[in-house]
Protein backbone atom coordinates (compact mmCIF):
# COMPACT_ATOMS: atom_id res chain seq x y z
CA UNK A 1 0.00 0.00 0.00
CA UNK A 2 2.69 2.43 0.95
CA UNK A 3 4.56 2.21 -2.35
CA UNK A 4 1.42 2.85 -4.39
CA UNK A 5 0.71 5.97 -2.39
CA UNK A 6 4.17 7.33 -3.01
CA UNK A 7 3.85 6.46 -6.70
CA UNK A 8 0.59 8.26 -7.18
CA UNK A 9 1.77 11.25 -5.22
CA UNK A 10 4.74 11.40 -7.56
CA UNK A 11 2.40 11.44 -10.51
CA UNK A 12 0.48 14.32 -9.00
CA UNK A 13 3.55 16.50 -9.33
CA UNK A 14 3.64 18.14 -12.74
CA UNK A 15 7.04 17.93 -14.38
CA UNK A 16 9.18 21.00 -13.68
CA UNK A 17 8.33 23.68 -16.20
CA UNK A 18 10.16 26.79 -15.17
CA UNK A 19 13.71 25.84 -15.91
CA UNK A 20 16.88 27.82 -15.38
CA UNK A 21 19.76 27.13 -17.72
CA UNK A 22 23.15 26.87 -16.08
CA UNK A 23 25.17 27.83 -19.12
CA UNK A 24 28.63 26.85 -17.74
CA UNK A 25 31.74 28.98 -18.26
CA UNK A 26 33.09 26.98 -21.16
CA UNK A 27 29.87 27.07 -23.16
CA UNK A 28 29.51 30.79 -22.53
CA UNK A 29 33.00 31.56 -23.70
CA UNK A 30 33.79 28.96 -26.32
CA UNK A 31 30.66 27.32 -27.67
CA UNK A 32 27.47 29.36 -27.30
CA UNK A 33 25.70 27.01 -29.70
CA UNK A 34 25.45 24.43 -26.92
CA UNK A 35 23.45 26.87 -24.81
CA UNK A 36 21.06 27.60 -27.66
CA UNK A 37 20.72 23.91 -28.41
CA UNK A 38 19.90 23.20 -24.76
CA UNK A 39 17.23 25.90 -24.73
CA UNK A 40 15.70 24.57 -27.92
CA UNK A 41 15.53 21.02 -26.57
CA UNK A 42 14.03 22.17 -23.28
CA UNK A 43 11.46 24.38 -24.95
CA UNK A 44 10.45 21.63 -27.33
CA UNK A 45 9.88 19.45 -24.29
CA UNK A 46 7.47 22.03 -22.93
CA UNK A 47 9.64 24.05 -20.55
CA UNK A 48 9.95 27.76 -20.13
CA UNK A 49 13.65 28.48 -20.03
CA UNK A 50 15.31 31.40 -18.33
CA UNK A 51 18.97 32.28 -18.13
CA UNK A 52 19.64 33.91 -14.75
CA UNK A 53 22.04 36.77 -15.52
CA UNK A 54 24.04 36.61 -12.30
CA UNK A 55 25.46 33.15 -12.95
CA UNK A 56 29.17 32.67 -13.47
CA UNK A 57 30.88 29.39 -12.62
CA UNK A 58 29.99 26.39 -10.47
CA UNK A 59 33.29 26.59 -8.59
CA UNK A 60 35.00 23.40 -9.76
CA UNK A 61 38.39 25.01 -10.39
CA UNK A 62 38.56 26.10 -6.76
CA UNK A 63 36.95 22.92 -5.43
CA UNK A 64 39.39 20.63 -7.20
CA UNK A 65 42.37 22.73 -6.12
CA UNK A 66 41.37 22.30 -2.51
CA UNK A 67 40.25 25.90 -1.97
CA UNK A 68 37.12 25.30 0.06
CA UNK A 69 36.55 28.90 1.12
CA UNK A 70 36.34 30.16 -2.45
CA UNK A 71 34.22 27.20 -3.47
CA UNK A 72 31.74 28.00 -0.74
CA UNK A 73 31.59 31.65 -1.72
CA UNK A 74 30.89 30.71 -5.32
CA UNK A 75 28.35 28.09 -4.31
CA UNK A 76 26.45 30.69 -2.30
CA UNK A 77 26.45 32.96 -5.32
CA UNK A 78 25.04 30.13 -7.45
CA UNK A 79 22.38 29.36 -4.84
CA UNK A 80 21.27 32.99 -4.95
CA UNK A 81 21.23 33.16 -8.72
CA UNK A 82 19.14 29.99 -9.07
CA UNK A 83 16.67 30.51 -6.25
CA UNK A 84 13.08 29.69 -7.05
CA UNK A 85 13.31 27.77 -10.32
CA UNK A 86 11.67 24.36 -10.67
CA UNK A 87 14.85 22.96 -12.12
CA UNK A 88 18.40 24.00 -12.87
CA UNK A 89 19.80 22.34 -15.96
CA UNK A 90 23.39 22.32 -17.22
CA UNK A 91 24.60 20.98 -20.56
CA UNK A 92 27.45 19.34 -18.65
CA UNK A 93 27.74 16.34 -16.37
CA UNK A 94 30.56 17.78 -14.33
CA UNK A 95 28.89 21.14 -13.61
CA UNK A 96 25.52 19.47 -13.07
CA UNK A 97 27.17 16.97 -10.75
CA UNK A 98 28.93 19.77 -8.87
CA UNK A 99 25.56 21.31 -8.03
CA UNK A 100 23.68 18.09 -7.38
CA UNK A 101 26.36 16.01 -5.67
CA UNK A 102 29.01 18.25 -4.16
CA UNK A 103 27.40 21.46 -2.92
CA UNK A 104 25.70 20.02 0.17
CA UNK A 105 28.99 18.62 1.46
CA UNK A 106 30.48 22.12 1.45
CA UNK A 107 28.18 23.26 4.22
CA UNK A 108 28.31 20.44 6.73
CA UNK A 109 28.99 22.97 9.48
CA UNK A 110 26.06 25.27 8.68
CA UNK A 111 22.61 23.66 8.75
CA UNK A 112 20.81 26.61 7.14
CA UNK A 113 23.18 26.78 4.17
CA UNK A 114 23.28 23.02 3.92
CA UNK A 115 19.50 22.97 3.62
CA UNK A 116 19.68 25.52 0.82
CA UNK A 117 22.40 23.55 -0.92
CA UNK A 118 20.36 20.38 -0.63
CA UNK A 119 17.35 22.14 -2.01
CA UNK A 120 19.38 23.28 -5.03
CA UNK A 121 20.95 19.84 -5.37
CA UNK A 122 17.51 18.25 -5.48
CA UNK A 123 16.49 20.29 -8.50
CA UNK A 124 19.77 20.36 -10.43
CA UNK A 125 20.26 18.19 -13.49
CA UNK A 126 22.44 17.39 -16.42
CA UNK A 127 20.64 18.26 -19.64
CA UNK A 128 20.23 14.94 -21.45
CA UNK A 129 19.28 12.91 -18.39
CA UNK A 130 16.82 15.66 -17.45
CA UNK A 131 15.17 15.42 -20.85
CA UNK A 132 14.89 11.64 -20.76
CA UNK A 133 14.48 10.73 -17.09
CA UNK A 134 12.50 13.72 -15.81
CA UNK A 135 10.63 15.04 -18.82
CA UNK A 136 10.17 11.65 -20.44
CA UNK A 137 11.46 12.73 -23.85
CA UNK A 138 11.86 9.64 -26.00
CA UNK A 139 12.85 11.04 -29.35
CA UNK A 140 13.89 14.21 -31.11
CA UNK A 141 13.11 15.60 -34.52
CA UNK A 142 16.59 15.99 -35.90
CA UNK A 143 18.64 14.82 -38.81
CA UNK A 144 22.36 14.13 -38.96
CA UNK A 145 24.14 12.32 -41.71
CA UNK A 146 26.81 9.81 -40.85
CA UNK A 147 28.35 7.68 -38.18
CA UNK A 148 29.00 9.13 -34.73
CA UNK A 149 30.77 7.75 -31.70
CA UNK A 150 29.86 8.82 -28.17
CA UNK A 151 32.29 9.41 -25.30
CA UNK A 152 30.87 9.01 -21.79
CA UNK A 153 32.22 11.91 -19.78
CA UNK A 154 33.23 10.81 -16.32
CA UNK A 155 31.09 12.86 -13.94
CA UNK A 156 27.97 12.39 -16.03
CA UNK A 157 28.54 8.66 -16.26
CA UNK A 158 29.66 7.80 -12.75
CA UNK A 159 28.06 10.48 -10.62
CA UNK A 160 24.82 10.96 -12.50
CA UNK A 161 24.31 7.69 -14.37
CA UNK A 162 24.20 9.28 -17.81
CA UNK A 163 24.77 6.36 -20.15
CA UNK A 164 21.72 5.16 -22.03
CA UNK A 165 19.86 8.49 -22.22
CA UNK A 166 22.00 10.15 -24.88
CA UNK A 167 22.14 6.90 -26.83
CA UNK A 168 18.37 6.60 -26.73
CA UNK A 169 17.86 10.09 -28.11
CA UNK A 170 20.63 9.71 -30.69
CA UNK A 171 18.85 6.57 -31.83
CA UNK A 172 15.94 8.75 -32.96
CA UNK A 173 18.06 11.11 -35.06
CA UNK A 174 17.46 10.39 -38.73
CA UNK A 175 20.47 9.44 -40.78
CA UNK A 176 22.66 8.93 -37.72
CA UNK A 177 24.47 5.70 -37.02
CA UNK A 178 26.07 5.12 -33.61
CA UNK A 179 29.40 3.31 -33.67
CA UNK A 180 30.70 2.61 -30.18
CA UNK A 181 34.39 2.95 -29.52
CA UNK A 182 36.10 0.21 -27.47
CA UNK A 183 36.33 2.06 -24.17
CA UNK A 184 33.85 4.94 -24.18
CA UNK A 185 33.91 5.01 -20.38
CA UNK A 186 37.62 5.69 -19.95
CA UNK A 187 38.56 9.27 -19.08
CA UNK A 188 39.81 11.48 -21.95
CA UNK A 189 42.44 13.11 -19.74
CA UNK A 190 40.85 16.55 -19.50
CA UNK A 191 40.15 16.78 -15.77
CA UNK A 192 39.88 20.58 -15.63
CA UNK A 193 43.17 22.04 -14.44
CA UNK A 194 44.69 18.53 -14.57
CA UNK A 195 45.30 18.85 -18.29
CA UNK A 196 47.61 21.83 -17.83
CA UNK A 197 49.09 20.77 -14.48
CA UNK A 198 50.11 17.34 -15.80
CA UNK A 199 50.18 17.87 -19.56
CA UNK A 200 52.27 14.79 -20.33
CA UNK A 201 49.91 12.41 -18.57
CA UNK A 202 46.91 14.18 -19.99
CA UNK A 203 48.41 13.89 -23.44
CA UNK A 204 49.03 10.17 -23.04
CA UNK A 205 45.40 9.73 -22.02
CA UNK A 206 43.88 11.80 -24.78
CA UNK A 207 46.23 10.19 -27.29
CA UNK A 208 44.82 6.81 -26.40
CA UNK A 209 41.34 8.25 -26.62
CA UNK A 210 41.89 9.67 -30.07
CA UNK A 211 43.20 6.29 -31.25
CA UNK A 212 40.06 4.63 -29.93
CA UNK A 213 37.86 7.26 -31.59
CA UNK A 214 39.66 6.85 -34.89
CA UNK A 215 39.40 3.07 -34.72
CA UNK A 216 35.63 3.29 -34.35
CA UNK A 217 35.50 4.57 -37.91
CA UNK A 218 32.96 7.24 -37.00
CA UNK A 219 33.26 10.63 -38.69
CA UNK A 220 31.88 12.53 -35.70
CA UNK A 221 32.64 12.44 -32.00
CA UNK A 222 29.94 13.48 -29.54
CA UNK A 223 29.92 13.92 -25.77
CA UNK A 224 28.02 15.84 -23.17
CA UNK A 225 30.78 17.97 -21.63
CA UNK A 226 32.50 20.78 -23.45
CA UNK A 227 35.77 20.46 -21.52
CA UNK A 228 36.26 16.88 -22.68
CA UNK A 229 35.17 17.82 -26.18
CA UNK A 230 37.69 20.65 -26.49
CA UNK A 231 40.42 18.37 -25.19
CA UNK A 232 39.61 15.57 -27.63
CA UNK A 233 39.02 17.99 -30.52
CA UNK A 234 42.34 19.67 -29.84
CA UNK A 235 44.17 16.35 -29.90
CA UNK A 236 42.40 14.99 -32.97
CA UNK A 237 43.10 18.21 -34.87
CA UNK A 238 46.72 18.31 -33.81
CA UNK A 239 47.01 14.80 -35.21
CA UNK A 240 45.42 15.93 -38.45
CA UNK A 241 42.31 13.84 -37.97
CA UNK A 242 39.20 14.57 -40.02
CA UNK A 243 36.86 13.54 -37.19
CA UNK A 244 34.43 16.35 -36.33
CA UNK A 245 33.66 17.05 -32.73
CA UNK A 246 30.34 18.34 -31.40
CA UNK A 247 28.36 18.53 -28.22
CA UNK A 248 25.56 15.95 -28.26
CA UNK A 249 22.94 18.65 -27.62
CA UNK A 250 23.79 20.38 -30.88
CA UNK A 251 23.06 17.25 -32.88
CA UNK A 252 19.88 16.48 -30.93
CA UNK A 253 18.66 20.05 -31.46
CA UNK A 254 19.21 19.88 -35.19
CA UNK A 255 22.20 22.22 -35.08
CA UNK A 256 24.60 19.67 -36.53
CA UNK A 257 25.17 21.90 -39.54
CA UNK A 258 27.22 24.47 -37.59
CA UNK A 259 31.01 24.39 -37.94
CA UNK A 260 32.34 21.73 -35.56
CA UNK A 261 34.46 22.53 -32.51
CA UNK A 262 37.79 23.99 -33.66
CA UNK A 263 36.61 24.26 -37.25
CA UNK A 264 36.66 27.61 -39.03
CA UNK A 265 33.42 29.26 -40.05
CA UNK A 266 32.21 27.98 -43.37
CA UNK A 267 33.89 30.06 -46.00
CA UNK A 268 36.38 31.67 -43.66
CA UNK A 269 39.27 29.63 -44.92
Amino acid sequence: MVPSVSNSSENLHPPPRRVALFVTCLVDLFRPAVGFAAIKLLEEAGCTVEVPPLQVCCGQPAYNTGDRATTRAIAMQVMDAFEGYDAVVAPSGSCGGMLSHHYPGLFDDDPALKARAENLAGRSYELISFLVDVLGVKKVAAHYDGAVTYHDSCSGLRELGVKEQPRQLLGSVQGLELREMKTPEVCCGFGGTFCVKYPEISNAMVGEKSADITASGAGTLLAGDLGCLMNMAGKLQREGSAVRVRHVAEVLAGMGDLPAIGEPETGAR
Binding site: D28, P32, A33, C195, V196, S202, N203, A233, R238
Partner: peptide
Protein backbone atom coordinates in the same frame (compact mmCIF):
# COMPACT_ATOMS: atom_id res chain seq x y z
CA UNK B 1 50.49 23.02 -21.12
CA UNK B 2 47.57 22.70 -23.47
CA UNK B 3 49.01 23.67 -26.82
CA UNK B 4 52.18 21.64 -26.47
CA UNK B 5 50.12 18.58 -27.33
CA UNK B 6 46.76 19.86 -28.53
CA UNK B 7 45.26 22.58 -30.66
CA UNK B 8 43.05 25.01 -28.82
CA UNK B 9 39.61 25.45 -30.38
CA UNK B 10 38.74 29.09 -31.04
CA UNK B 11 35.25 30.32 -30.20
CA UNK B 12 33.12 31.09 -33.24
CA UNK B 13 32.37 34.74 -33.94
CA UNK B 14 29.24 36.31 -32.52
CA UNK B 15 30.16 36.84 -28.88
CA UNK B 16 29.67 34.92 -25.66
CA UNK B 17 26.48 33.04 -25.01
CA UNK B 18 25.33 35.58 -22.46
CA UNK B 19 25.96 38.47 -24.85
CA UNK B 20 24.03 36.79 -27.63
Amino acid sequence: GWTRFRDFPAPPPGGTFHAQ
